[in-house]
Design a protein around this nucleic acid. Structure first.
Length: 326
DNA sequence: TCTATTTGACCCAG
DNA sequence: CTGGGTCAAATAGA
């Protein structure tokens, strides 16, 4: 039971539903193209010199098509999750966007969260089931096999506190929070969900920064060499594991060329894409991504962002065409 | 015994 | 009312 029939209401708008539909349509077309290439190009040029395309070009096209396919798969799942998050992001936008000079604090104790606490059932250290309004960012992590979850290890210690089947998603979403939540008051959390289209791909959404000793150490290591950005970070808390990968372009997105020197990104995580969201805008970094990626979670101004996302992808495709992947 | 995971129930936002 | 996020009791493993 996919529940996909309820997409219309779920995505909170015909436009969003249309986005998913459009992506599905793109998927179909690419599949068709792939099939066409299969019949024409033949198994790798074995069919003799009759192939109109040079073997190298053919190979590149195949790689492109397969990249497109997996990208579209991911895009669909992102779009679906985005749509469900749109409302929450909207609230985030209202808070952070309306007053960008007073964003949630970097220490994760998030002022906005405290604000929410005041309205919730109450108590100091107490549990509050109020939706989080901490800054969040997401990335996609590709594993090598279905059993391989090594790349999901981002260097922090997480404790799983829940799992839930998500409507329209093939795989359940797992909820983690920092192991040191109670001992050190670290409010970092993350959600991990397998992408619908690609079981090897995980969408990881982080909420809040680590304030535990481990997290601070990690951040310090990552910050090394980018002190200049520190002032900016006050406004845009940076994903702890990816600080050296993020070049800030608020309300827009940028392709970042990251070194892989972060100690928190295992080599196996070379296929990952980060999108970073904070209230008024979102940005994404694509690094070492062998596919064309559709980046970014979105927010209330989804339409504009999506437009930009696609242009970004086109650019990336262009760049990518000349990269050493082929 | 301690810590982590599982899972059903509860709560909140839309 | 529904779906997503969180809690907390039960359970499993070291």
């Amino acid at each position: 039971m996919e529940g996909s029939s309820s997409d219309g209401s779920r995505y909170g708008g015909a436009g969003r539903c249309a986005l998913v539909a459009e992506l599905v349509q793109m998927q179909g077309m690419v599949r068709q193209l792939e099939a066409e290439m299969g019949t024409h190009g033949g198994g790798g040029g074995g069919g003799g010199g009759a192939a109109p395309m040079a073997a190298g070009a053919d190979e590149r096209c195949r790689a492109l098509v397969s990249g497109l396919l997996s990208s579209i798969d991911r895009s669909i799942s992102i779009a679906r999750s985005c749509c469900t998050e749109a409302a929450a992001a909207g609230r985030l936008t209202q808070q952070a966007g309306a007053a960008p000079e007073s964003p949630p604090s970097v220490d994760g104790s998030a002022g906005s969260d405290l604000g929410a606490d005041s309205r919730c059932r109450a108590n100091a250290a107490g549990p509050c089931k109020k939706r989080k309004t901490l800054p969040k960012w997401s990335k996609q992590v590709k594993v090598r096999s279905v059993q391989d979850v090594g790349p999901l290890d981002d260097g922090f210690s997480w404790r799983k506190y829940g799992q839930k089947d998500i409507l329209g998603a093939k795989y359940p979403r797992a909820y983690f929070r920092c192991t040191h939540r109670h001992t050190q008051g670290c409010h970092a959390s993350k959600q991990v969900q397998r992408a619908d289209g690609d079981p090897l791909l995980f969408d990881v959404v982080y909420h809040g920064d680590h304030t535990c000793a481990h997290g601070v150490r990690s951040a310090a290591a990552a910050i090394d060499g980018q002190a200049a950005a520190s002032a900016e970070q006050k406004h845009q808390p940076t994903p702890p594991q990816e600080q050296n990968a993020v070049s800030v372009a608020f309300t827009s997105m940028a392709v970042v060329n990251a070194s892989t020197s972060s100690p928190f990104v295992s080599p196996a995580m070379s296929d990952c894409q980060i999108s970073y969201e904070l209230g008024g805008g979102s940005m994404a970094g694509v690094r070492n991504v062998p596919d064309v990626e559709l980046a970014s979670k979105t927010n209330s101004s989804m339409g504009d962002d999506m437009e930009f996302m696609f242009s970004l992808d086109a650019d990336f495709l262009d760049t990518y065409k000349y990269s050493s992947y082929f």
